[in-house]
Design a protein around this nucleic acid. Structure first.
Length: 308
DNA sequence: AAGACGAAAGTGGTTGA
DNA sequence: TCAACAACTTTCGTCTT
C-alpha cells in the first residue's frame, strides 16, 4: 500500500484516513481521495447458490441507504402464494397487498427523488461518501417517521446533509448548503433542528478548528499561517472566548490575526466572505482575541519589521 | 480611494416565567 | 405563549493608511 501525501484536487495537506470506512478524505476540499482501499466491516460474500433471500438477510449486509430501498425490499407475498389460499383469505391478501403497495410506493417514490437530489448537492459540495451515506440514512428515517410532511423534500435533504457533515467533522456552513441546494438558509436551519430533535440525533457543537483548513485554503494562506491560526484558536478556547459564539466567526478571526502575524495580510472582507460572516463579527472576535491573548506583542513586532 | 473601526438599529432563535 | 436576551447582521459615518 502506498501513502498519498497531498490532495490531488487542491494540493492540501490535510488528508485524513478513516479506517472504518476505508477512506482517505481531504479535509480542505472534502475530496474522497481513495474510498476502496479495503472493505472493512463487511463479512458478506457471494457464496455459491444460496437463495438470494438467505444471503441478503444473514448479516443484513451489504446495505446502503443511498439506494432507495436500501437494497432490501419487502413484499406481501408472491402470486404463487395465492394457490395456497381459500377465497376468504384471498380477499384479505389483496387488501393487504394493496395497502402495502400504496405505502411503500409512496415512500419509495419520495426516496428515489430525494436521494437523487441528495447526491446532486453532495457532489456539488464534494462531500465524502461516508457523509452522503449518513445523510441518506437520516433522510430515510425522516421519511419513515413522516417528518417530511409539510416541508419541502429539498429542505429536508439539505438538513440531513448538514447534520451528516457536522457529525463527520467536515462541517459546511449553512450558506454553502444553501448555495448548493437553492434552499433558504433559515429554512435549512429550521428543518435541520427539527429533524435532529425528532430523530434524537445528538450533534456535538461544531469545532471552529474544523473550518480553519478549508477557509485557509480558499484564501490561499500558507500552512504555517494555518497552524498558527489553530494555535490561536486553542488559546481562545482556553480563555473561554468561544462558547456561545458562532464557530465560523471565531475561525475567521483566528485566521485573520494569524495572517497578519505572518505578513500575509487579507482584508477583513476577504476573510469574512469565505467564512460567511460579516466584517463586523470578525472585528468583534478579533478585538476579543487581542484583549484576552496578548497578541499585541506579536503584531507590534511585525509592524516594526515592516516599518524598517 | 480602500480598508478598518465602531455605533445604532434590526433579525431570528433561545430561554425562562 | 410571551418577553427578555445574546449573537449576529445591516447600514452608515468617521478615521487611518
Amino acid at each position: 500500500m502506498y501513502y498519498i501525501k497531498k490532495c490531488p484536487e487542491c494540493s492540501g495537506i490535510n488528508l485524513f484516513v478513516n479506517r472504518e470506512k476505508g477512506e482517505v478524505i481531504c479535509k480542505d476540499c472534502g475530496l474522497v481521495v481513495e474510498d476502496k482501499m479495503v472493505e472493512f466491516g463487511q463479512e458478506w460474500r457471494e457464496f455459491e447458490d444460496d437463495r438470494r433471500s438467505d444471503r441478503v438477510r444473514r448479516t443484513g449486509q451489504p446495505m446502503t441507504y443511498t439506494q432507495f430501498d436500501q437494497g432490501l425490499g419487502t413484499e406481501v407475498g408472491q402470486k404463487a402464494d395465492l394457490f395456497a389460499l381459500g377465497s376468504k383469505d384471498r380477499n384479505k391478501f389483496f387488501r393487504l397487498r394493496k395497502w402495502q403497495y400504496r405505502i411503500s410506493t409512496a415512500i419509495e417514490r419520495n426516496l428515489k427523488l430525494a436521494l437523487a437530489e441528495l447526491k446532486r448537492v453532495s457532489s456539488y459540495l464534494k462531500l465524502p461518501k461516508s457523509v452522503e451515506e449518513e445523510a441518506a440514512m437520516i433522510y430515510t428515517q425522516a421519511v419513515q417517521r413522516g417528518l417530511v410532511r409539510g416541508r419541502s423534500m429539498e429542505s429536508v435533504v439539505s438538513g440531513a446533509l448538514y447534520a451528516a457533515c457536522r457529525r463527520h467533522e467536515v462541517p459546511r456552513t449553512l450558506d454553502e448548503l444553501s448555495e448548493a441546494s437553492g434552499i433558504e438558509k433559515k429554512e435549512i436551519g429550521r428543518t435541520y433542528r427539527f429533524v435532529t430533535r425528532e430523530l434524537g440525533i445528538t450533534i456535538l457543537p461544531s469545532n471552529p478548528a474544523d473550518y480553519i483548513a478549508r477557509f485557509a485554503s480558499s484564501l490561499k494562506l500558507t500552512a504555517e499561517t494555518q497552524s498558527k491560526a489553530v494555535e490561536i484558536l486553542e488559546e481562545a478556547q482556553h480563555a473561554e472566548l468561544t462558547s456561545g459564539r458562532g464557530p465560523t466567526g471565531i475561525a475567521a478571526a483566528s485566521l485573520y490575526v494569524s495572517a497578519l502575524i505572518h505578513g500575509e495580510k487579507r482584508t477583513q472582507r476577504e476573510v469574512a466572505d469565505v467564512a460567511g460572516v460579516t466584517e463586523v463579527t470578525i472585528r468583534n472576535r478579533y478585538k476579543e482575541l487581542l484583549e484576552k491573548l496578548d497578541l499585541d506583542r506579536e503584531l507590534k513586532k511585525i509592524k516594526k519589521k515592516i516599518g524598517k
